[in-house]
Design a protein around this nucleic acid. Structure first.
Length: 286
DNA sequence: AGCCAGGCAGAGA
DNA sequence: TCTCTGCATGGC
């Protein structure tokens, strides 16, 4: 096992890994354990020090800095926010929470599986898929075995009926189709990083079972589009209650507001609203 | 027991 | 363009 440490100015590892943007991290006695780019990783935090362990020496750790969003300056991000007491309170409640930069295929597949599912169920489905079809990854030896998230090529070869054994229900057809598109090269997720937001979003929404919300999750959590603003049931409810009390604006109006109000780091603002409302972190009065 | 979950697509108005 | 409904499964 090899180790490294990162000094961090403002970072909350638990909030970052457990705020609903990623689904595979598990908290065990010695830290948060997961798999990134086919490598087993254990992460822990003590004050301003993040500690990381892998099985084999990766040489450099740029991939992990990238994944964890260590280069994000949260003060600079918050400085772009509108002068808005609701958002300020939500951001304050989420101090140290960062956006992850996840692997695009895993992110896309995960959020296809997320529709009308609770997070515990999403985690169970993804865990089942990984154990069934993912590559075994060298781990610490103790504890359960580690698996990578299965690649699109692998899942493209699994029938819809078999996918349903992982309890994903009607989402199996959508996952199958997305895997086939990515595996064939008809959809190149990496290429989308360089595209305009609207173009990248349209490419994702061309997939069956991928609408605006799931597309924006992939754009925000894996492709670096910080303005993408996924509106799910939680965020929709929060926007309605916090910004439009005693009114009932149509969904279209909520979406327009989300695009206009929050600025170039709207996606981060969205994650603050999601996390703060879901975990009931807002102070009384909001 | 019944409502809801990090939605989406298709149908009908 | 808007609203309604079915979809699979399981938590609370």
């Amino acid at each position: 096992m090899t180790f490294t440490e990162f000094k961090v100015a403002e970072y909350d590892l638990a909030a970052t890994l457990d705020c609903g943007q990623a689904f595979r991290w598990e908290l065990r006695e010695e830290g948060w354990e997961g798999v990134i780019l086919g490598r087993w990783v254990r992460l822990s935090q003590s004050g301003a020090t993040l500690r990381a362990a892998t099985i084999r020496d990766p040489g450099d750790w740029a991939w992990l800095r990238e994944y964890l969003g260590l280069e994000e300056d949260l003060d600079a991000i918050r400085a772009t926010f509108p002068a808005d007491p609701v958002l300020r309170a939500a951001a304050e409640a989420c101090r140290g929470m960062h956006l992850l930069r996840q692997e695009p295929w895993e992110c896309l597949a995960s959020f296809i599986l997320s529709s009308t599912k609770q997070i515990v169920q999403i985690r169970a489905i993804i865990g089942s898929l990984s154990a069934r079809y993912g590559e075994r990854v060298a781990g610490p030896g103790r504890g359960p075995e580690a698996f990578a998230f299965p690649g699109a090529e692998r899942l493209a070869g699994v029938s819809e009926a078999e996918l349903r054994e992982s309890k994903m229900g009607f989402r199996a057809r959508y996952l199958q189709a997305a895997a086939a598109e990515v595996a064939s090269g008809r959809l190149n997720l990496e290429t989308l990083r360089g595209a305009a937001l609207e173009e990248a979003r349209a490419a994702l929404m061309a997939l069956p079972g991928v609408g605006r919300k799931i597309a924006d999750c992939v754009l925000l959590f894996s492709l670096g589009f910080t303005r993408a603003f996924p509106v799910d049931v939680w965020v929709s409810r929060a926007l309605r209650e916090l910004y439009f009390p005693r009114r009932r604006p149509p969904a279209r109006r909520i979406l327009e507001f989300s695009e206009r109000h929050f600025g170039p780091w709207g996606g981060y603002a969205q994650q603050c609203l999601f996390h703060a409302t879901r975990r009931r972190l807002l102070p009384a009065g909001f």
